[in-house]
Amino acid sequence: MATRISQLLNQSLPTLRYEPTAKRVRANLGGQPVLDTTRALLLWEPRRIVPIYAVPEADVLAELAESRAEVAGAPEEAQVLTPDDAFALHTAAGTAMDVRVPGHTLEAAAFRLADPDLPGIVLLDFRAFDWLEEDQPILAHPRDPFHRIDIVPSSRHVRVEFEGMHLADSAHPVVLFETHLPPRYYLPRADVAWDALLATARTSQCPYKGTANYWALASGGREVAWSYPDSLPESAAIAGLVAFYNERTDVIVDGHRLARPDSPFR
């Protein structure tokens, strides 16, 4: 019987998953070293969709102490946990730890796992520290070795609407295909109806693409579009182009209106 690989990956979501990485991984806090290891694991707690670094406690250079901070577990109704969900929403068994370097104490910024298959392994809050893979800074979260991005130019005709209102129209899209997400159609800025959009103050970071800024409808409501003005080098083909949420707008490709996908961004 044939098995779809994405279904296998989805079936593993409720479990504690890990994968060793050969990269040298370092973290710093205020210029002071917190860890330095060549034995890091990429680790996904149950229901987490992106990995976090877990390392042998012996490779942590900062002081670790059992935390007295109140740490709430993830709510049962949360089917998935995204990078926007707090590190403290743990779904694996373990103990919250404070991280101390001279002049700084970060409460519950580490988590000592209780899993018998991963003895002596500690997770660290990615957002609390500055991280390097080898000598390269990384953004948002560690890169997932099972996650891929392909960026290709296209001659498809793409039109974007919201409740009949024109937002964009282009015959020169660049299509970004990303694991577990719908295709994203990045359009030239000249093909966007800017009078229908209003820039927001929010930014976000992606370890594959860089730092994004956003636009909402000028008439009010949620954000519907984004752009990477200074993308990472490997995503240079989308730098400055504008993409719209397929989940929140009507994207029409070669005359066919796409169904709004079910994703964490709906």
Score class of each variant (00 low, 15 high):
residue 46 P to G: 01
residue 57 E to N: 06
residue 62 A to R: 07
residue 73 G to R: 07
residue 56 P to R: 11
residue 74 A to Q: 06
residue 59 D to T: 13
residue 78 A to M: 08
residue 75 P to N: 12
residue 68 R to E: 14
residue 68 R to H: 15
residue 69 A to N: 05
residue 71 V to A: 03
residue 73 G to N: 11
residue 79 Q to F: 08
residue 50 V to M: 02
residue 48 R to H: 05
residue 47 R to P: 11
residue 66 E to W: 14
residue 60 V to S: 10
residue 51 P to C: 10
residue 73 G to A: 14
residue 59 D to Y: 01
residue 55 V to Y: 04
residue 56 P to M: 01
residue 65 A to L: 04
residue 56 P to H: 00
residue 48 R to Q: 14
residue 72 A to M: 11
residue 54 A to W: 04
residue 77 E to S: 09
residue 67 S to E: 00
residue 63 E to P: 07
residue 52 I to A: 05
residue 54 A to C: 03
residue 49 I to V: 12
residue 52 I to P: 10
residue 60 V to G: 04
residue 73 G to K: 12
residue 62 A to I: 03
residue 46 P to K: 02
residue 70 E to Q: 15
residue 59 D to M: 01
residue 66 E to T: 14
residue 75 P to A: 12
residue 52 I to H: 09
residue 65 A to H: 02
residue 58 A to D: 09
residue 71 V to M: 02
residue 65 A to I: 13
residue 72 A to I: 15
residue 77 E to N: 10
residue 76 E to F: 06
residue 53 Y to H: 12
residue 50 V to G: 00
residue 57 E to K: 00
residue 55 V to Q: 03
residue 63 E to K: 09
residue 66 E to S: 11
residue 58 A to E: 13
residue 65 A to C: 02
residue 53 Y to Q: 02
residue 70 E to G: 15
residue 68 R to T: 14
residue 69 A to Y: 11
residue 48 R to D: 15
residue 71 V to T: 06
residue 69 A to P: 04
residue 75 P to V: 10
residue 61 L to E: 05
residue 60 V to M: 00
residue 49 I to L: 11
residue 50 V to C: 06
residue 47 R to N: 13
residue 48 R to I: 08
residue 73 G to Q: 12
residue 56 P to G: 03
residue 51 P to H: 01
residue 52 I to R: 03
residue 67 S to T: 02
residue 77 E to K: 15
residue 72 A to Q: 15
residue 59 D to V: 10
residue 62 A to P: 12
residue 63 E to C: 04
residue 68 R to M: 10
residue 75 P to I: 05
residue 73 G to M: 09
residue 53 Y to C: 03
residue 59 D to I: 06
residue 77 E to Y: 15
residue 46 P to S: 04
residue 72 A to H: 15
residue 63 E to L: 07
residue 55 V to T: 04
residue 54 A to M: 14
residue 77 E to L: 06
residue 57 E to C: 06
residue 60 V to C: 03
residue 69 A to K: 13
residue 74 A to F: 05
residue 51 P to L: 00
residue 50 V to P: 00
residue 47 R to L: 06
residue 66 E to D: 02
residue 76 E to Q: 05
residue 47 R to G: 13
residue 47 R to H: 01
residue 66 E to Y: 08
residue 56 P to C: 05
residue 79 Q to E: 10
residue 61 L to T: 06
residue 51 P to W: 09
residue 76 E to V: 08
residue 70 E to Y: 14
residue 64 L to C: 13
